[in-house]
Amino acid sequence: MPRLPEPPGRLNQPALFLDLDGVLAPLAPTPDAVVPDARRTAVLRRLAERLQGRVAIISGRTIAEIDRIAESAAASASGVHGLERRRADGSVDRAEPDPAVRAAVAAFHGFARTRPGLIVEDKTVSAGLHFRQAQGEADAVAALAERLAGETGLTLQPGNLVVELKTPGTDKGTALTAFMAEAPFKGSTPVMLGDDLTDEHGFEAAQALGGFGILVGPPRGTAARYGLPDVDAVLAWLDSVEETA
């Protein structure tokens, strides 16, 4: 598919919603291998100050992991696809975990026990199975996740070389929409940056509220209006927004 046009560097009262892995930080072999970066942290802090707090990180990771990697540079954050959400004032909403998540975690551990390279991630409100280091298992992982979703009623959320079974009810789009109803985001233009399928809900929500999405990475079918090739291009673009806001 043709690459999407680059987004404009000058925006009118934007509110920025940023995915973490693949957008602010390069993808890594394991979730723990993603670490803080001085340039990223500095860009986020300058941008948050310039936009009067209208910056939020919206990720599949927990808020604790977002803060570890971004060094708490974003006061507003949403974790686990909207199941955790911290407002600009520091108050936090967390969904009650579906009891079936425990069964999904156990099933993922049992499946991964004899398949080297698979990594199980327990986020309490969701269960993730990463196959970045075992890509030959992709079909088996997908089949397992689909079966478990049907048996448990959990929401199946495919991602970039990961599948996740999560407590139903939220996604990145519901998180963005909730932020936009509150200060300091209310009345601004939402811009969502993301790289994989989990971000499509955010792109759609931003567009519905008068903004747009920016797809990071290779071209594909998407609701995003613009595109950027990689993390370095994202940080450079964020710098341009900060300078012209």
Rank of each mutant, 00 (worst) to 15 (best):
V101S: 07
R94Y: 01
D98T: 09
A205H: 03
R147I: 12
E137W: 09
R87S: 12
G210S: 09
Q157R: 15
K186P: 00
A142C: 00
G173R: 05
L148N: 05
G117H: 09
E164K: 07
S188D: 05
Q52F: 03
L154H: 01
R39V: 13
A233I: 06
G82W: 04
R3Y: 14
A106K: 10
A208P: 01
P184F: 13
H109E: 15
A88C: 03
G53C: 08
T222C: 03
T30A: 14
L11F: 02
A175V: 14
L51G: 07
E182G: 08
P26S: 06
G117M: 09
N160T: 11
A38Y: 01
D230I: 03
A25V: 14
D230P: 05
R132M: 07
P97G: 03
P31F: 09
A140C: 00
R40L: 15
P229A: 12
T177K: 13
P8Y: 13
I66K: 02
I119V: 15
Q133W: 08
I119C: 02
T30W: 06
E71T: 11
A64W: 04
L27A: 10
G82H: 03
V234L: 06
V163R: 13
L215D: 00
G60H: 10
S240W: 02
A205N: 06
G90Q: 10
R113H: 14
S126D: 05
L4C: 03
L18I: 06
R86M: 13
S72Y: 12
L215H: 00
A15W: 08
E84Y: 09
A178G: 14
A236R: 13
G210K: 03
D139E: 15
E96Y: 00
F131L: 12
G169E: 09
R39Q: 15
P31V: 06
D230Q: 03
P31W: 09
A25W: 02
V141K: 08
G187R: 15
D21R: 10
P31K: 02
L129K: 08
R46S: 12
T155P: 03
L24A: 12
L235V: 13
G117E: 11
G210W: 02
I214S: 01
D21E: 10
L129Q: 11
M192Y: 13
G173Y: 04
T124P: 04
P14S: 11
P97A: 10
T155R: 13
F179A: 01
L129D: 11
T30D: 08
R46Q: 11
D139M: 06
Q52V: 02
T174W: 08
G227P: 03
A106G: 09
A127H: 11
L83F: 09
G79I: 14
E84N: 08
